[in-house]
Design a protein around this nucleic acid. Structure first.
Lengths: 205, 205
DNA sequence: TTGAAAACTTAACACTGTTAATTATATTTA
DNA sequence: TAAATATAATTAACAGTGTTAAGTTTTCAA
C-alpha cells in the first residue's frame, strides 16, 4: 500500500501549495482582493480544481487563519521566561499589538472576518489554535491572582476584559478608527500607552 | 427660483428614500447581502439611477452609517442626568454594549467595515457624528479626573482604553469569537461583568 | 491492452459594482 | 403652441465574483 500513501502525500502537497499561495496573495493584496480565480492562477490550476481540495472558499480562509495562529504563537515563545505574571501579561499584550499592526491581513482574517468561523461551523470542528491562545491568557490571569498581584475576580471576566481591550485597539487601528481620536502619527504610541495604563491600573496596589 | 428649490427638494426625497430602503435591507438581510441591485429594486429604480444620487456604494454605506450614529446618540440622551462621572461612564458603556448587541448590522457598518471610511476619505469630509460621540467620551473622562475619582492620566490614553474595551467586547461578540472563551449563553452576561470589572478597577480607591 | 478510477478542465449560472450610450420626460425658449 | 434644451432614468455592456454539472484527460490495476 505504498502507492496509496504516496498519493495521499501528493494530495497534501497540493493542499499546502494552495494555502501557501493564498497567504502570499493575502499579504500582498489584502483580504478583499483574494479570489478563488486568483489563487487558482497562482497555483497553475483551473479555479474549479480548488474545490477538489477544499469544500469552498471559506474553508481555504479557515486554514490560512490557522497558520496565522501559528505565526502568532511564535511571537510568544520567549514569554515563559518572564516570571512576574503582570509583566508576562503585559508583554503578551505588547506582542498582540505588534502582531496585529505588523500583520493586519492575518489579523483581519483571524479576528475580524466571519468567513473562517462560518467554515468552522460547517466543518463541525474546533478552534484549536485559537483555544490554545485563550488558554494561555486564562492561565496567566489565574497565576496573577494566585500570586496576589491581581484583585481576585472571575478568571473569564478578566481574561475577556484584557482580550477585548487589545483586540479593540488593534481592530479599531486597522479599520482607521483610532485616528479619529488622536492624530494618525500618534496612534501606535497611544495604543501602547493605553495598554500600559490598563496593566498599571489592574495591578494590585 | 421656486421651481429650482422644489427640484432640489425632490432630489433630496429620492436620496432619503434610497437610504431608508438601504437600511431596511441591512437590518433584514445583513451587511453582506446588501447590493446596489437589491436597493434599486426596493426603491423601484434602475440600479444605475442610484449613481445619479450617490457617487458609489461606499457613499451610500457612509450615509447609512451616519444615521446609525444618530440612533446611537438617542441611547445616550438620559446620560446627562447622572452626576457621578464614573457612574455616567459606566452607563455609557452599558448603552454601547446594548446598542451593539441590539443592532449588530449597524454596528458592523459603523465600526467594523472599512467601506464607510473609504467613502469618507474619497469625500474629503469629516466623521462628524463619530467625532461627536468621541468628544462626549473624552469629556466624561476629563470630568472624572477633575473630580478626583480617576487616577490622573492623559485623557486620550484613557478614552482610547475604554473605547477599545467596549468595542472589543461588541465586535468579538458579533463575530462569534467570545463564545470560544465562555459558553454562548454566558457571553452577554460576562461582557457586562467585564465592563463592571473595568470601571471598578479604574475607580480611584 | 483494456477498463475503471482519479484528477482536472470547460462551460455555464447567477450574482456583484460600475460606465457609456441611449431613451424618455420635463422645462424653457422662439 | 411647437421646437430646442436640460434633466432624469434606462438599457446594454464590461469585468469581476463563488460555485456546480458535465465532459475530458491522465493514472494505474487487472
Amino acid at each position: 500500500m505504498g502507492i496509496v500513501a504516496r498519493k495521499e502525500k501528493q494530495k497534501q502537497e497540493v493542499r499546502s501549495l494552495i494555502l501557501e499561495e493564498s497567504m502570499k496573495l493575502f499579504v500582498e493584496e489584502g483580504f478583499s482582493k483574494v479570489s478563488v480565480r486568483k489563487i487558482a492562477e497562482r497555483v497553475q490550476y483551473s479555479p474549479t480544481t480548488l474545490y477538489l481540495y477544499f469544500k469552498d472558499k471559506n474553508e481555504i480562509l479557515f486554514y490560512c487563519c490557522e497558520s496565522g495562529f501559528k505565526k502568532m504563537l511564535e511571537h510568544n515563545i520567549a514569554l515563559g521566561l518572564i516570571s512576574d505574571p503582570i509583566e508576562r501579561l503585559h508583554q503578551m499584550g505588547v506582542n498582540y499589538l505588534n502582531f496585529g499592526l505588523e500583520n493586519p491581513e492575518y489579523y483581519d482574517l483571524m479576528f475580524i472576518q466571519e468567513a473562517p468561523m462560518s467554515a468552522l461551523i460547517d466543518m463541525g470542528a474546533g478552534w484549536s489554535s485559537g483555544d490554545q491562545a485563550l488558554e494561555a491568557l486564562k492561565m496567566i490571569v489565574q497565576d496573577a491572582m494566585d500570586k496576589g498581584v491581581l484583585v481576585p475576580a472571575k478568571v473569564e471576566t478578566v481574561a475577556m476584559a484584557v482580550w477585548s481591550m487589545v483586540h479593540g485597539l488593534v481592530s479599531l487601528a486597522i479599520r482607521q478608527r483610532l485616528d479619529k481620536l488622536v492624530p494618525a502619527e500618534d496612534v501606535e504610541k497611544t495604543m501602547h500607552e493605553s495598554l500600559d495604563w490598563l496593566l498599571k491600573t489592574m495591578k494590585k496596589a
